[in-house]
Design a protein around this nucleic acid. Sequence first.
DNA 1: GTCTATACCAGGATAGAC
DNA 2: GTCTATCCTGGTATAGAC
Lengths: 195, 195
Amino acid sequence: MTGAGSTRDHLIESTQELLWERGYAATSPRAILDRAGAGQGSMYHHFRGKEDLAAAAMAATAQQLLARAEAALTGEGSAFERLAGYLLRQREVLRGCPVGRMTGDADVLESAVLRRLVATTFDSLRAHVDAVVRAGVRDGEFDSAVDPAELADTVLAVVQGGYVLARAAGDPAPFDRAVRGAVAMLDHLRRKDTV
Amino acid sequence: MTGAGSTRDHLIESTQELLWERGYAATSPRAILDRAGAGQGSMYHHFRGKEDLAAAAMAATAQQLLARAEAALTGEGSAFERLAGYLLRQREVLRGCPVGRMTGDADVLESAVLRRLVATTFDSLRAHVDAVVRAGVRDGEFDSAVDPAELADTVLAVVQGGYVLARAAGDPAPFDRAVRGAVAMLDHLRRKDTV
DNA sequence: GTCTATACCAGGATAGAC
DNA sequence: GTCTATCCTGGTATAGAC
């Protein structure tokens, strides 16, 4: 948090990129160092090792991701509009979710620190979506039978699963279909007399 | 396809397990050999290498997965009931999807053979779900405004994303909430005059 | 058809010079 | 604070005996 552009910052940025591209286990310190243009010594001076550096990188990634999600979910419009906006938001679909991706990496799940970072990121995300759904039910916009906790996880799952389908196909189309289908279903939850 | 219990079969089974547990990149030939109780020579006699063996294992896994999905989706009941049955089916949630998991493994996506196996598996799965949705629309069970292609991918995405959320949390609960939320939304798509 | 021995390269961390 | 040299381990593949 001192000044941007330091070697330490370069290391974190390079790690963020590589974690997204290759995952944790498949990212070697050497690859990070090469990309950051630094030597071994710098990394082990600023961080205790690969895991420590990855934790710093993941924390930064999570913060950026949550900031963008919050912007989409707390903007203007009805609950439906905000959820639809979040689902339909432009994404780099084929790169996948930089956080969700980590759940496929056994080494991440075996690291207490990294695992916790992934878990808390999704907890925060879930809380944001949940709040929007609850507001929609409270205001009578959605059918009162809607279970906010369930719907919040459904919305998150559609996005995460959309990434999986798109990467499996090597094509963003399945992601786009999945989120559009979800938006269509959300539309059916609205009390038609209200809108 | 000769007789079960051969060294070759043991190798494939061990690889299937390890791919599910650890992924492709993180699974070493040595680990496979240890689990199968075989030596290096056996593997390189029956297969050209790690990639070739993994392809055989993934093909077997895909076949088993598709068989089970097909059973749930082509059983008795209305379209809604079959989709709900598929979504709510008991799963080993924290292990994740043995096929979807592979999309997080860069080495898999970089292998033409393995990538193709993942892609075609989801294509088949999508076709099954799509057929059920189309039947539901055709029979007037679902609102005619439903786009079958979109809804099919939404259903697949909820399952795949549910795995991601559950593994992130280290708890099957998010998966269960996600699928229940999806079922509740599917229920709202039904033309109430028909049921 | 299966085994062991070996080769070669890369991952991750440390030591010590500058 | 950063560099290079070095160390040890394990991944993947091959060779050749049985």
